[in-house]
Design a protein around this nucleic acid. Structure first.
Lengths: 263, 263
DNA sequence: GAGTGGTCTAGACCACCAC
DNA sequence: TGGTGGTCTAGACCACTCT
């Protein structure tokens, strides 16, 4: 690849703006204007040093800045590339509606097939625990009461996109398939309804932040990608909370869509 | 402040894990365990160099890592501090319901007063434009059709938290207060309903990503804080799209809450 | 003025990747 | 094997904050 496409700018070493920021601005503009496209390789650090006449740390600071913005990705031994935007999954607000459950498929599987992606689930763990305080509050559990915890990781086409931990009050789950690693067709919501807990509504609380190191590891997140934390609470027609699901999602893989009535 | 509280770890310079990551791990643990609390000052770079016996860049790499995670904030000339978590505004999914509008207050103002925070709005701009393609699509505008653009920035207790750009089809807005900088009591939704466009429902699409430099500047975002992009589409009872609002929100200032029916 | 973080230089050695 | 990015050193000067 010819570097001429990219390397044409003059720096202003006397200006107020730090040199590394000027270099970052220059490269960012090259991406914005399409001189560098998704997947294109940037000039190597050595070339950038030559071109701009600066030390390596100055070049690296510029690249770090762009990496933190999620614009580029550095691959050890290979080079630095313009980040490819992954396909985005759009999650509609009716995705847990009963009519979707009747086909016997859990929500994640059903949606993925619509999106022509290959879904998979791993790292499944089921146990009985005392949930964290914020979860216990939402479950309206008595002090010290226990819940069945179902933890798993979802992937699309082999890329991890989401981890989820469901908490179900222990008295609802004990002795049912909900406490088994494989809850059967339709997932745990189908099982809850079979137990007489017809679902009435959900609430979802959505936050976004940078991942903790452990989250970045499990989701194989590159630098500059935040996560959604989505906590869903399920209510049955008696008004009882029957499940709280704590989800961490790679934010570059999701678009959350909600319908709101105006009255 | 005594450094003993923090500086007690041994490094393993021969281990596989980079030294700066070990230092970051150590400091992160100190925060997680409460040895360092919100607002506490970390030992200076010079002290960390002495303590760990490393060069300054190694210390700075460790601090950079934690800053990118949103855990700490460096203040030039003052020191490095454990980031304070700002109070979070919880946005309920009924915040645009008609009943809230009747009191004559725009949504942002009404919510803020509930949260005992002082709201303000600035950078108000109103003009007539051809909206960007993704907005035109949502507005169902004809090719090249125009819309009134209302742009503004919201702050809470002086801190910018959100920028919003509303687009209203030009034929709905021309010659009404909607095209004025001050749309009057109840905001533009109240004006739209007065024009006979009774609101029926909204859709909201929520994404999260790292801010572009311009967004970070306008919202005064520290490193390590992502943004929500929330695009709200308003439909009237005739099924017509009467507004699309493109919002960028500081993710550390918001918790989005939605209600979903189960059927 | 003393102490803090911000920027920059000029090297060194290492780990990873493709050829 | 050569080129790539990853880590680390040992300095230097600057800008900002507080006293």
């Amino acid at each position: 690849m010819s570097d001429d496409v990219v390397l044409t700018a003059q720096l202003d070493p006397m200006g107020d703006r730090a040199v590394y920021k000027q270099i970052a601005d220059h490269l960012r503009t090259a991406v914005a204007r399409g001189r560098l496209r998704e997947g294109d390789q940037l000039p190597s650090e050595a070339r950038l040093m030559d071109h701009y006449g600066v030390a390596r740390m100055t070049v690296r600071n510029a690249l770090r800045l762009l990496q933190d913005e999620g614009l580029i990705i550095a691959e050890h031994g290979r080079g630095v590339y313009v980040r490819r935007r992954p396909p985005v999954r759009r999650l509609a607000s009716d995705r847990f509606a009963q009519r979707h459950r009747k086909e016997g498929k859990a929500a994640f599987i059903a949606e993925s097939e619509q999106a022509a992606a290959i879904p998979s689930v791993d790292m499944i763990k089921v146990s009985e625990v005392r949930p964290p305080a914020d979860i216990s509050d939402r479950l309206h559990l008595a002090e010290g009461a226990r819940a069945v915890m179902r933890s798993r990781r979802y992937s699309l086409d082999g890329r991890p996109v989401e981890t989820a931990i469901s908490y179900i009050p222990a008295d609802l789950a004990r002795g049912t398939p909900i406490a088994d690693p494989n809850p059967g067709p339709g997932g745990i919501y189908a099982r809850l309804e079979e137990q007489g807990h017809t679902l009435e509504r959900f609430t979802e609380e959505v936050a976004a932040r940078m991942p903790a190191p452990e989250e970045a590891r499990v989701l194989a997140l590159p630098p500059g990608v935040p996560v959604f934390r989505l906590v869903r609470t399920a209510y049955d027609i008696a008004g009882r909370v029957v499940e709280v699901c704590d989800t961490i999602m790679a934010a570059d893989a999701y678009l959350l869509a909600y319908d709101l009535p105006a009255r």
